[in-house]
Simulated assay, not measured.
Amino acid sequence: MTSFDCAADSFLGETVMNRDLPLAVTNPAKLMQAAVLLIEDDKRLGQIIAELLDDNYRVEWALDGHSAQKKMDETNYDAAIVDRHLPDMDGLDLVRGIRALGITTPMLMLTALSSTADIVEGLDGGANDYLTKPFRFEELDARLRTMLRGYRAQQHSYLIGDWIFFEAIETVENPAGERKRLTSSETALLKVMSDNPAHVFTRSELLRAAFRPDAGESTVDAYVSYIRQKTCKELILTVRGRGYILGHPEEGLV
């Protein structure tokens, strides 16, 4: 990858990018990439960063703090890159507000403010890392990878069609990047099926593997229904006269 200094006056030619597209994509491998929110008001610099990150991440781009807040309300991102000087607020106030809500998404502060006091203020304010402008893209990419190692990079996940099941955090993510929490029983059921996705499970198999021995087979039907309600009906398919199998949902949204 070509290296260069990224600053507000950087330029990498004219690149047309459709940032209206959702995080969902048709390439299943892309769905396994970390979702990153880039918050940068400089359109030229933001476009360059987004284009370069797009090879390895699912990138969404916000131009100001309020639109970034809206995106974070609607989508669970694996990391965020936050410019300090936004047109409608201080990026550090944005980070503080997000942390006050209990959101632990790793955040990298990107700014021209480079004094020790500024860096300490940013880190104490809730940023996980701090990178000053101008910077080299390789360093930004490396810092992003480092932040993710302790977050999504180590989460055990399963791809079910266009959906992602995160066992460790008991969560499913739809093609738009929106997540739903699962109960421990729902997680146990989906884990058993995800470990052997091509197998048609009988109710008795699922009952023994995911529930108490004294539970009735209707318990399996109930929890399959709960999971479908939180995801889509195609996530778990009924095989008439046999049981259940994981489906391959391509566009079912909550």
Rank of each mutant, 00 (worst) to 15 (best):
A79V: 14
L86E: 14
I98F: 01
I98A: 00
D83S: 13
D64K: 03
D64T: 01
G102M: 04
L94A: 03
L94H: 00
D78P: 10
L101G: 06
T105I: 11
E60K: 15
W61F: 07
M89Y: 06
I103C: 05
D78M: 12
M89E: 09
R84P: 03
L101P: 01
R58G: 12
H66V: 10
D55N: 13
T105R: 01
D93I: 08
A62K: 08
L86K: 06
A100Y: 01
D90S: 11
V95A: 12
L101R: 07
R96V: 03
Y57P: 09
D64H: 09
G65C: 05
L101N: 13
L92K: 00
E74N: 14
N56G: 14
T105Y: 06
V82Y: 09
G102E: 00
P106T: 06
Q69V: 07
L63E: 15
W61R: 10
I103W: 04
Y57T: 14
E74C: 06
T104E: 07
A68N: 01
P106D: 03
R96A: 01
D55I: 11
A62F: 03
K70D: 06
D88N: 05
H66L: 14
D78N: 11
T105H: 04
K70Y: 07
D78A: 06
A79S: 05
L101Q: 12
S67C: 05
H66P: 13
L94R: 02
D55S: 15
G65Y: 02
I81W: 03
N76K: 09
V59L: 14
E60T: 15
G97P: 10
Q69D: 02
G91L: 07
K70E: 13
G102R: 01
P87R: 04
L86Y: 13
A80V: 12
H66Y: 12
D88A: 13
R84A: 15
T75E: 05
E74Q: 12
R99D: 04
D88T: 11
G97H: 01
A79Y: 00
R58P: 10
V95W: 05
P87E: 11
I98G: 00
L86N: 04
A79M: 05
V82M: 11
K70C: 08
D73V: 09
A100F: 01
S67H: 08
L94I: 03
L86T: 15
R84E: 13
V59R: 12
I81R: 12
I98L: 11
G65V: 04
I98K: 06
A62N: 07
G91C: 09
A62Q: 06
M72D: 02
R99E: 00
A79N: 13
E60M: 15
L86G: 10
R96K: 11
G97N: 01
Q69F: 08
E60L: 15
H66F: 14
D93M: 11
A68T: 02
S67P: 03
M89N: 07
L86V: 11
T75F: 03
R99H: 02
G102K: 02
L101A: 03
D93T: 13
G65K: 04
D83V: 04
D93G: 07
T105P: 01
G97I: 00
D55W: 13
G102T: 01
L92F: 08
N56Q: 14
Y57E: 04
T104V: 08
